[in-house]
Design a protein around this nucleic acid. Structure first.
Lengths: 198, 198
DNA sequence: CCCGGATGTAAGCAGCTGCTTACAACGGTA
DNA sequence: TACCGTTGTAAGCAGCTGCTTACATCCGGG
């Protein structure tokens, strides 16, 4: 099928997996910057320094590329982070300037890329549901899942405000300050007042 | 210029202002449903039951239509609502099914329609800043504006979760329950703990 | 060496996009 | 009635879209 190991000495001039990876990274960045509909397959191929036909060879369609981008980045972060740190980790990755380093931008991609529900929307939805159920464990309230949904909504909203609206003070605020405010407020969400009549 | 008053008896077969309004309403709905990039001028004209050339006659460009849609709906709601009710009003309009009645969907439009910053982005930004400064008055904290930004972010996020992700429980939750949870939690945001060293 | 699959390329397809143009139909006014 | 600006229409433009095809080029195994 494929050579099990690559001779580590030199970079190969023709390297399918490297090309795949470059496409994946270019797509991740562009989807996060311009959204799914606003990104053309030509621009992805150009940023990857790759012929655009290869995009279809490796991912079948533009939509398939999106699915792989989101599933890869998102699920990895999700599975490597303990639930109690998940929200803060995701929040910090939202608050960090996208310019520096190769930050994880899966949620940014998620929120800017989702379109009207078709084939791949299921994959994205599953990702969201895994995040939610991880967060839901943090509250003992009977409606913990709803509360987790609201927390995720805040996360997405903060990312939206920073990447799309991009105005002070949120855009330039110290991530530590924002984190403190949000996490402290969310403490109230987890610890249910539950002041209804039941 | 134009007939100052319309004979109220019969609907006119050729009515520029009615056509304008129909285009505006069709655009508002479609932008909210599919986002700006996902909506075609042909689909807007079709839903309005109007020739697409009229769209350009009355609004100059697709972008001009968007600007007018958002400015109209958003600023009206903003100016008719006292600040202390503003958040709940906006939240409830987010939570209300779009099918019933002619709800105000300006924020929905705002969050789904914004693109990369060009000409009309300024108008949208201004709208956001007016919302924010109205909300900022609700907290006495020194960083009240940041807190207002965070509240708006939550609002946008909740709208995003309902319209885009569209899954239970948030999508189908009782608006009263969500309102109670969110407003109660936000009370904590307004009333600053301000637990820093100063 | 040389063959054949893996990898990369150039060109182009049909369809859609935002927008424009040239023109017809209406209807108030003189 | 004749006119003329307003309103509505049909057709089409150039450009871009996602995607496909036909063809070079590489390179490891026989």
């Amino acid at each position: 099928m494929e050579p099990a190991s690559v001779p580590p000495s030199a970079e190969r001039r023709r390297d399918a997996s490297a090309t795949r990876r470059r496409l994946l990274e270019a797509a991740r960045d562009l989807f996060a910057e311009r959204g799914y509909e606003g990104t053309t397959v030509r621009s992805i191929a150009a940023r990857a320094g790759v012929n655009q036909a290869l995009l279809f060879r490796y991912f079948g369609s533009k939509r398939g590329l999106l699915t792989e981008v989101v599933a890869l980045g998102g699920l990895e972060q999700l599975r490597e982070t303990p639930p109690e740190e998940l929200f803060e980790t995701a929040l910090r990755s939202m608050l960090t300037r996208s310019a520096e380093g190769a930050e994880d931008r899966s949620l940014e991609v998620y929120l800017r890329s989702i379109g009207r529900g078709d084939e791949a929307a299921g994959t994205l939805r599953n990702l969201g549901e895994e995040y939610r159920s991880a967060l839901a464990g943090l509250s003992g309230a009977p409606d913990a899942v709803l509360r987790a949904d609201l927390a995720m909504a805040w996360l997405l909203g903060i990312g939206l405000m920073r990447t799309v609206v991009a105005r002070e003070p949120l855009a330039g605020a110290d991530p530590d300050d924002v984190c403190r405010l949000v996490l402290d407020t969310l403490g109230r969400l987890w610890a249910a007042p539950d002041d209804r009549g039941e």
